[in-house]
Design a protein around this nucleic acid. Structure first.
Lengths: 219, 219
DNA sequence: ACAAAGCGGTTGTATTTACAACAGAAAAGA
DNA sequence: TCTTTTCTGTTGTAAATACAACCGCTTTGT
């Protein structure tokens, strides 16, 4: 677990905390390490979760397959980001989504109750972690709203423009690489893959953008 | 402001805190009272927000009008619920949505920094408020994901079923009243009003549900 | 009481999407 | 290297949607 302390230091959750301090907090926070192969489920719909999970290696998707087999990708988690924070409340019930490794991945799970409750003894920087946790969870909140903004667009084209514009802004560049292949992007925007592929090519032909594989450039 | 202490007591934020304790915390938390007439803006897109806002009277909508005039209702806030918690982080930037009173409404604003930082002197129950805040913000998170679930449905009918099913479950009854008129419901689900109205009537004719005004019953 | 505004339902048409099926290119695996 | 699988783009058709326009009813405000 010590191996990943440098990764943890760069996360939002441990922002402003030194590696030594993180090391000494691991036990206090009930940290446990788990690894998953590509395609494996980290968490499953219906399970109970009593942990905050930080991804320290790989990439996972938060997704859900409905009754008819339609897959929705609700979000992607990159190294250093966390998930499960929506279930910190005792009465929050079971997980509504699956979490799946899209690459070989490693996570560290922290006991929720130990994270949000400052312990009386030691752990001088625990209160900073509590505050970081606030900021992280509220940032996640804004991201969800942003995604709702994409989803509330009526047409596939509008959804694409909404999403790609955000990515361009996030990268501070009109050229960027997206972390999805076509099927995943379609699942993320909740549209049909072939229809989206079609629309993408139309937009390219109209001179709105260029792309090659996952590399895009808005014009 | 004292007038609303009983209302605050029943909110998620002050769960487990007595009225006397709330009264004594108001100053500590930098509470301020504001009232709005139906239709007035509580907050506007582009503004900076440094407060947690609790609705103590009326009802407000979190919404956004895009470049073309399409309105999206991202969420509704009822008495006792809070909003603005997505902007607690110092670097969270400006508001991305409008907050509009859909009835005459009254809110109490609390200084963010004072809420999430326990003060060294007095305020014995402040730490409980911090924990409540965690639970509330994480619950909001789940709600957003739930809404994403509705939005990710492909057709108007599926969106309606997804939304109405959730409402039925929330009310623990197949009969319930929704807090939207037709136009608002359409804005909430990001579909065309007339198309939705049409679909709703089709579903009624097929015997899937009954409705009269805002009262629905699933069959 | 009356006029004006808002609400809910209906219809027709042009547009857009979902779905299925297929083909070539690229990637993965044996 | 060869085979298999995955990925991406393309096309055609049936289905669903957006949009505009209209009507009757209810609510609001004067």
């Amino acid at each position: 677990m010590e191996k990943y302390v440098p990764v943890l230091k760069r996360t939002r959750l441990f922002s402003g905390v030194t590696q030594e301090e993180i090391s000494s907090m691991l036990t206090c926070l009930g940290a446990r390490l788990f690894s998953y192969k590509k395609g494996e489920y980290v968490l499953r719909q219906g399970e109970h979760l009593r942990d905050i999970v930080v991804l320290v290696e790989g990439r996972v998707h938060i997704q859900r397959d409905d009754y008819w087999g339609n897959r929705s990708i609700l979000g992607r988690i990159d190294v250093g980001e966390m998930f499960g924070e929506a279930y910190v409340a005792p009465e929050s019930g079971v997980l509504l989504n699956d979490v799946v490794a899209v690459e070989d991945s490693t996570v560290i799970m922290f006991d929720v109750r130990r994270v949000i409750t400052t312990c009386p003894s030691g752990c001088r920087f625990h209160s900073m972690v509590v505050q970081n946790m606030f900021f992280a969870i509220s940032e996640k909140n804004r991201k969800l709203v942003q995604k709702l903004g994409h989803m509330s667009r009526r047409t596939t084209r509008e959804k694409l423009i909404s999403y790609l514009s955000e990515e361009a802004e996030r990268h501070s560049s009109s050229a960027f690489t997206i972390p999805f292949n076509r099927q995943q992007l379609a699942d993320f925007l909740s549209v049909d893959r072939s229809a989206m592929s079609n629309e993408l090519c139309k937009m390219r032909d109209e001179g709105l953008l260029e792309f090659e594989k996952n590399n895009f450039r808005l014009l």
